[in-house]
Amino acid sequence: MIGVISYLIFFVTVASILSIAVLGLNLQWGNTGLFNGGVAAFIGAGAYGLVILGGTAQPDHLGGYGLFYPLALLGGMIVAGILAWLVGILTMRLRHDYLAIATFGVAVAFENFMRNSDKISGGAKGIRGFERPFEAFIGDPFYFSIGFFIFAMTMLVLVYIFLEKLIRSPFGRLLRAIREDETAAQSLGKNPGSIRLKAFVAGSMIMGLAGGLYATFYAFISPQDILPTLTFQIWAMLIVGGAGNNKGAIAGAFLIWGVWTLSGWGLSRFAPLEAQLYAGTIQYILIGVIIVGMLLWRPQGLFPEKLVVSQTGDRAQS
């Protein structure tokens, strides 16, 4: 029984952390129409930022500043934000595919950099031994996991409330206006480039928060955790949930994380031994099929955005 509960707690904790990342992506893609092909990099920036700032001193590489946990978490978010700002400033005014390519490039370069720069990130073996707050105090791992589960859920709720407030604010309406019709927004005297940049940075910082929580949970981060495929998983969650709708995004995260773990378990349990090696391969095909299938047959997602206040306007060109 306790095993089942532990597993459920593990499942929901990870799903909540992933949900936060999906919410960040929803702010960028769902609400603003910004394509982010490098979600993994921003999650990674938050994770590495946290571990380096808040971890205990390590012999061979940067970090171990032992910063107060909330500050370290914020620091990771800021690292993610700076990374997003750098990419955004170069690409916001260009065609959307430049942003897609540049962000994808960030993810490849970030992972590559973390894998190779032993001095900064511990290289391929990553950074171990992050001291989780209250872990020593609580002692019992089971109670700690319950505590962390509550913490992750709280963070998710906070992010959700923040985003709901944000999209109902004048700024949020502006984001939608830009997504629907950039020229019209521009004619209202707004600068779509700078507004989109803000949304992009904010979304990436939320991903950074997810990364920080992820690294805290596992007390460990390595390049293996931030492969580009993580980006696809986060996307699949948003596409399944329905872009634009925060509740849908969370539901999508839980659903896809469920499918992912279930398929992994099913393959390890029932697939013939020679297929075991290809379990990951089969799972990626599954993710790809889900993404493509949803786009073909249900592009609005399972839980579509409810309020669509888009006045397409008269596009007469006479």
């Binding site: 391969t281 790809g288 889900i290 493509v292 786009l295 073909l296």
Partner: peptide
């Protein structure tokens, strides 16, 4: 763009 990522995953893993 999303669909192309999905197709890349499918083709590569197939």
């Amino acid at each position: 763009v999303f669909a192309s990522f999905g197709m890349a995953l499918i083709v590569r893993n197939l």
